[in-house]
Design a protein around this nucleic acid. Sequence first.
RNA 1: GCCGGAGUGGCGGAACAGGCAGACGCACAGGACUUAAAAUCCUGCGGUUUUUAAUAAAACCGUACCGGUUCGAUUCCGGUCUCCGGCACCA
Length: 825
Amino acid sequence: MNYDFHKIEKKWQTEWENANIFKRTEDSSKPKYYLLEMFPYPSGKLHMGHVRNYAIGDVIARYKTMNGYNVLHPMGWDAFGLPAENAAIQNKTHPSVWTTTNIEHMRDQLKEMGLSYDWDREITTCHTDYYKWTQWMFLQFYKQGLAYKKKSKVNWCPSCQTVLANEQVVDGACERCDSHVVKKELAQWFFKITEYADRLLEDIEKLDGWPDKVKTMQQNWIGRSEGAAIDFTIDGFEEKITVFTTRPDTIFGVSYIVLSPEHPLVDMLTENTEYYEAAMDFRKKVEALDEITRTSDETEKEGIFIGRYARNPLNNKKVPILIANYVLMDYGTGAVMGVPAHDQRDFEFAQKYDMPIIPVIKPKDDSFDIDNLKEAYVDEGIMINSGQFDGMNSAKGIDAIISYMEDKGCGRRNVNYKLRDWLISRQRYWGAPIPIIYCDECGIVPVPEEDLPVLLPTDIEFRDRGQNLLANCESFVNTTCPKCGRSAKREVDTMDTFVCSSFYFLRFTDPNNEEHVADFDNAKYWMPVDQYIGGVEHAILHLLYSRFFTKVLYDIGVSPVDEPFKNLLTQGMVLKDGIKMSKSKGNVVSPEEIMKEYGSDTARLFILFAAPPERDLEWSDQGVEGCYRFLNRVWRLVVDLKDAYDNVEDRKDSQLSPQDKKLRYNIHNTIRRITIDIEERFNFNTAISAIMELVNAMYSYKDEVAKEDYTNWVLVEALDTLMLMLAPFAPHMAEELWHMTGHKGSIHDQKWPTYDKAALVKDEIEIAVQVNGKVRDRLTVPTNATKDEVEEAVFTLDKIVNEIEGKTVVKTIVVPKRLVNIVVK
RNA sequence: GCCGGAGUGGCGGAACAGGCAGACGCACAGGACUUAAAAUCCUGCGGUUUUUAAUAAAACCGUACCGGUUCGAUUCCGGUCUCCGGCACCA
C-alpha cells in the first residue's frame, strides 16, 4: 500500500494556511533572513523551471527557519506585459481578466506545492496600489535628472509594436518574440543608468555571494574602457572632430580619420561638394544593413574619402577624413583615428585602401622588422617616430601624451562605456503609465505625487494589435496641466515591465504601506535580500536594473542598502532529452500532472535530487518514480518502527550493542553531512542521498536486530532525526509522520538537529595498504593507533610481505585514518 | 577571436585543503515472497584478461586526450580536443 499523498498534502496545506504558520513580522530578537525567488510572470501555468526555483527556495526557507532565523519568504506576480495584451485582443477580454485568472490558477499551484510563503505579503505589479509606486519611482528619477526624453534611433520590434531596451535585443532579434528588430527614430523616455556605470561596475567587487559568471557578464555589459578624447582640427572649418581612443600613445601613427557614416559632421563637410552624393549613398547603404551584419567582424571593411583633411594636434600632420562602415555612431564619439600599424582593423583597412602604415611603437627586443608588418603590432613597446616621446615605454606614453594634450587643450582623459541609457518607454497598453503631462504652455510637466496613481483606463476596446491603445483613448489622453490648469495631454507610453521588477524586493518588506514604498525601518530590518534565486537569463537585465534602482533609492534615502542581493544562486535549466523543455519542441512535462500522480513531495524531492541547483537538470520519469518509491519506503519504515515511541525508557541504561552504535554513528554522521550540504553549498542532491543512506541503515538495523532486542531510544532518535531532516524537502510527509509518532506542534517549528560528536567516535577504522601507490590490502586498526603501530601492523600482512619480498623498502608513508603507502624498489 | 563553465559506468550524478574512483538513485540481471503478476525485500552490476568443474580468486587498464610535479593526481601545473554559456568591427 502506498501512502495517501493526496489526503496528506491537502490536509497539511489547509492546516498551515489556517494556522498562518508562515506569516512573518519584524522581530528584532531574532536574526533575520530574507529569502527571495524571482517572482513569475503569470503566464497561466507553472512550468518545471518554476517548480525547481521554488523548491530550492523552500528548502532554504524551511531550513533557515528551523535554525532560528526570522525568515521573510514572500511571493508575488510580475503581472504587466505583452502576452496579456495579446491574449486580450485574441479573446476580446480585458488583459486584467486574463492576468487575474492566471494568477488565481498559479497561486493554487504554488499552494499545492506546499511552499512556505507569507501570502499576506503578496504583490501584484498591475494593481494600482503597486504601480502607484512604479510611477512614484519614475517621478523620483525625473526629479534627480535621471529620467529624460530624447529623440534617437531606437530598437523597434515590428511584431510587438513597441520599442525595446538594448538589453532586450539578442542577436538583432527581440528577446521575447524573436522578430527582427529594426531601427526607428523616435522620442522616448530613458533612465540615465550610464550615470551609475562606474558605481555599478566598482560595486561588483562587493558581491562576494554572486557567481563569477554573472559578475563577469555585468562587467562586460558595462564595458568600461579608459582612454582619451582627442580633438582634430579640420582644414577650412571651425569645427573639430573629436575621436575616442584607448591608445593615445599611438597618435603619431595616425594616417587618417574615420567618421561613422551617420556622423552629423558628414553632412556639413560634404555639402555642395562632389563628395556629397557618394557620402549620402554610402550612408544609406550602411544604414540598410541590419545590426548583426553591421557589427559582425566578418563584414568587409569599406569606406570612402569625403574630400576633407584633418590635422593631427601633436605634429600638425595633414590626414584625410573618411567615412567607413566599421565605425559606429553609438559608441565613443562616432569618430576614430586610424593607426594601421597598431590596430588590426585599421591595418586591414589601410592595406585595402593603400594608406600609409606608420610604426610608432617597436617591440623591446626588436624581434621583428617593424617596417614590414604582416599584421598590426598591438602590444606595448618603445615609442618611435613620436618626436619628444621617442624612447618612452608606450604604457607610460599614454599618460604622458594625455598630460601634454591637456596642457595644450587639444585632448583629455576620457572614459567610455558600452552601457547605454535604459529606454523605458513602451507603446503598449498593459503597463504602468508614465506619469507625465504635455502642456502647450508649460512643456513637460510631471504628474504631482499626490495625484498618483495615473490610472490605466478600463474603457478600452481591444481590437487589432499594432496600435497604441492608450493613444486612442481620449478620456485618458485629455487632461489638464497641473501647473497652469489649461487643457493638456498625457504621455501615452507605459513603462518597461523591468521597471516594476526593479524594486519589488523592497516593497515586500512592507507591501501594504500606503504612504511609502516601504517604511524605512522595515526595509532596514529586512534588506538586503540574503539569498536571491533565479535563472541565469536575468544576469544582465533584471539584476543590473535592480542594482541601479537600489543605488538611486539609496542616494535619495529610500533604501537602507546600496546593493539589493547579498547572495545569488543561479539555477540551471530543466531539460528533457538533452534540450530545454518547450512547447515548440513538444518535450514539456507538466508539473500539474506529476503532482497529481505522485504528489508534490515527490516532485520536489526529485527535482532537488536529480542535479545540484546550478547545473542543468535532465528530467527523468523513472527518476521521479524512484523518489516516490523512496518516500514510500520512509513511510513504511516509520509505520513499522513507531512502536518504539511507546517505551522509550526501555534499556536506557544498558550497554549499546554494536548495531546500536553503528546506527547512532549513522544518525549523527548524516546530520553532519546534510548540514554541511545545505549550509555551505546548497547541494541538495547529496543531502538527499545522505537521508537515503540513513534510511538504508535503519532498514539494516531492522534486518539485523531481532525486534525484542531493539533499543527504543536509539530508534526514536533515528526516527526523529529522519523526520526533521526530511522536513524541508518533503514537508507534508514529514509533518504527517511527526504527528503520527505522537509529536505535538508543527515539525516546521522544530529545531534543526545537531550532531553528537561522541557518537561519531569509532573504536576501529579500516585503512588501505598500498605498495607503490597501488592498493594491495586493507587493515582494520584501532582509531587511536599511533603511526608506528600502524606501520608495524602493515608489515605483518601476508599479501604485503609477498608483495615486497626481494625488494628494498625505500620509505613508508602513513596517513592517519586513511592509508599506508609502502614505496619499494 | 576574447572571457567564463564543463567533460567521470548503460544513465542522472558522488568523491577535489592531493590519499581506497564510481556514494545515492535509475536502468538491467539473479533470488525470496506469490497459484501468478504487481508491489516489496535481498544480492550483483566500469572494462579487459587469466586461473577455476563451479562457487570464487587474481592481474592489468580505466575520471576527454598528451605530457609534467608527487610516495600517491578525477583533484595541482603546461599543452590539445569537444560541448555549453556570455561578449564580439567597442576604437
